[in-house]
Design a protein around this nucleic acid. Structure first.
Lengths: 123, 123
DNA sequence: GTAACCGATATACCAAAGTATACCGATATA
DNA sequence: TATATCGGTATACTTTGGTATATCGGTTAC
């Protein structure tokens, strides 16, 4: 595991910590937006077509689905493939690079679970 | 390490994956907002007073600093202590619970660094 | 009494993010 | 000719997030 700068700050200079800010913000940016995570999770269990995603992700509009998929595609987390069936079908899939988000997502999930428990215990 | 559901989806049911959504979103929510991370990082190297944070974090307004600190305090990531010096001084510190964010932040940083490199290589 | 310090808060404004709803182009089927 | 499918886009709107700027309350020093 990489250096633990929150629990051992004394071993790291202030500038070294600050250098972490931008990459962390980049990663957060990639996951930002209300629908990125639902989309990624929907794509985990296999490729999906636009309409399937639209049906599966409750509440999302076509506009947002299209927009968020485009952003995921730009970051090469998701691949878009057009098949010239009739009518046309468009398939979305998580790229191998997309699956590298797993460590981040699991770290977030583990902390999130503990946090939910903490909030619950407080009541 | 916890189960890796992005790279081994076949081993997990769809519902099990979906259960991850809320905790992940909770964790992201705690870090959301333009100034949470800068504040956390500023507090890593020691407790800071309001004015010190204001000076150190370039561009932040008193309103946002106050608001974000309050949110961090509600989530018990940061502790606020008032000393009745004259004039009054208020000290903010990262709680032990706050430092448990380290794994999340490091996972984000590591992925973010790789992502920056990937974007760079593409040009 | 008035200016200054700290730790904010109040008000007004602006910009980004998200929603609702209608519609498009291409093709097929009735 | 009309209607339906798929995969979206266009326009207008609302909501949320963030900024700018002025001000407050309590206290001391001048």
């Amino acid at each position: 595991m990489a250096k633990n700068f929150l629990q051992n700050p004394s071993k790291l200079s202030s500038t070294e910590c600050s250098k972490s800010l931008l990459p962390v913000q980049d990663a957060l940016y990639v996951l930002s937006g209300k629908w990125k995570l639902p989309i990624i999770i929907a794509l985990i269990h296999g490729n999906k077509r636009f309409k399937e995603l639209h049906r599966e992700i409750k509440g999302i509009t076509a506009k947002m689905l299209s927009k968020e998929l485009k952003e995921l595609e730009v970051n090469t987390l998701v691949k878009r493939t057009v098949y010239d069936t009739i009518p046309v079908s468009v398939e979305y899939e998580l790229t191998p690079y997309g699956t590298t988000l797993d460590e981040v997502i699991m770290a977030l999930r583990d902390w999130g679970l503990k946090h939910r428990q903490k909030i619950k215990d407080r009541k």
